[in-house]
Amino acid sequence: MVWVFLALMHLVLVNLFIWTNFENKETSGIYEYLRIYRDFSGCFRDYSYFAPNVANDTRAGFITKTEQETLHFLSFRAENEVVNTRYNNVISSGMRNPEVRELFSRSWATAIFGRDEKIQEVTVFAEAYLVPSIAEYRAGERPFWKVIYVGSFEKNKGEGFSKPQ
């Protein structure tokens, strides 16, 4: 019966985590311990997949410039579809909130700088795929990619840090 009690307590806590907007609760006191339990038990997110609405698809890419002014385009994609799903999540998490776009794109640009030391400048761009409603589609509108972010970062030789433009 002890195990039954523990199992029931666990399920009660799972309910608490998913129905009560637990993410925005206090971070101190009992909530701190509950949060640890939530993370350890895998309940760190609710299960509202594709809900209440389906968000726009996003994609990103990089234009790199070397010292010799050679331009290259790198897509933020991999050949592997399993990895692409993760890359897509990285892009959508980075671009969802306009306040953190700068931080995330800087991080992506840093990763690109690390790939080749000849790269002097990286331009990060991200686009959202806007799908018209069924009625709009029937009226002639078509889905299209809309640029939602562009940021350029230069390698700063002196300080070793990039600078957005």
Binding site: F50, A51, P52, N53, R59, Y129, V131, S133, I134, P143
Partner: peptide, 21 residues
């Protein structure tokens, strides 16, 4: 969660999900 969105009632959610590249 899905029931709170209009898209799931009028079919737009399925449309949007399937049209995403």
């Amino acid at each position: 969660a899905k029931m709170q969105g209009l898209q799931w009632w009028n079919g737009e959610a399925i449309w949007r999900a399937l049209m995403q590249p």
